[in-house]
């Protein structure tokens, strides 16, 4: 890192790997505990307190997993792409570490979204998979994540993997809205409006609050997981650094 950071010292300090490694470690419980509380609350609210839907009966309750996971699947991609941009432009290793750490988490949330959607589809549509616009977009998003991770793993050199995958993340993030729009357009042509709308603004409050709490809880879960994973990424990147050897000795 350069010496002429000037007024950016706080940023510089945060971006220094040993400092960040410690901070991230300390932050884990601060994210993990709220995540656990919020997710338990949301699950209880969603599965027990919320009334059954008059049309979908109890099957709708899967949205308390499905919707927060879907939200996180997109947010992870945005985080990954933003971190990649920062890493690419300012050549900050930590940003690349965050991007690399976010990808598997995002892919997992995408997979959860797809599985939950599929489980919901069985009682609703009588089939495990239907080419619904949102599910299809989500599937392509999973492909984007898999492509990103495949590209990372194809490089032996970490710096090159970081920078190449960062370019891909940025290209992907420009394409995500285009893909979504095209899939919605395609879907509106090929399928009637028989697809049930999930949720919707008319949702009564006692159904809605567990959903919002759940979304918040899953966001904290992401933050906790990202802290854990980014520490791992920092370790790999700094495996030769002296501060790590001191840490080991201590």
């Amino acid at each position: 890192m350069g010496k002429d950071v000037g007024t950016w010292t706080w940023f510089h300090k945060l971006a220094s790997p040993p400092h960040f490694y410690r901070i991230a470690g300390r932050m884990i419980p601060w994210f993990a505990v709220p995540a656990a509380i919020l997710i338990v609350a949301s699950t209880y609210g969603g599965l027990v307190m919320a009334p059954a839907d008059y049309q979908q009966k109890d099957a709708f309750r899967i949205i308390y997993v499905h919707v927060p996971a879907a939200w996180l699947s997109l947010m992870c991609y945005m985080t990954m792409a933003s971190a990649a941009a920062v890493g690419l432009i300012w050549r900050i290793k930590l940003a690349h570490a965050l991007a690399a750490a976010s990808a598997p988490i995002g892919a997992s949330f995408t997979l959860v979204t797809l599985v939950a959607g599929s489980l919901w589809g069985k009682p609703m549509w009588g089939t495990w998979w239907t080419w619904d616009a949102r599910l299809t977009s989500e599937l392509i998003l999973l492909f984007l994540y898999l492509g990103y991770m495949a590209l990372r793993s194809a490089f032996d050199d970490l710096t090159r993997a970081d920078r190449a995958s960062a370019v891909l993340a940025l290209v992907g993030v420009v394409n995500v809205p285009i893909i979504h729009f095209s899939v919605v357009w395609w879907n509106s042509l090929h399928q009637g409006s028989t697809v049930l709308r999930k949720g919707g603004p008319a949702m009564p409050a006692e159904m809605l609050w567990p959903l919002l709490v759940g979304a918040l809880g899953y966001t904290f879960l992401y933050a906790a997981l990202a802290c854990i994973r980014v520490r791992g990424e920092v370790l790999i990147r700094e495996r030769n650094a002296s501060w790590l050897k001191e840490l080991e000795a201590a």
Partner: peptide, 27 residues
């Protein structure tokens, strides 16, 4: 260009490009 520096380029290239190419296919 992304797969140039990597091992086993060709299959990887398809994995990267196909999802991005889906809107073209649709339209």
């Amino acid at each position: 260009a992304l797969t140039l520096g990597s091992r086993r380029g060709s299959v990887l290239l398809s994995l990267l490009v196909l999802p991005l190419a889906m809107p073209v296919l649709i339209f």
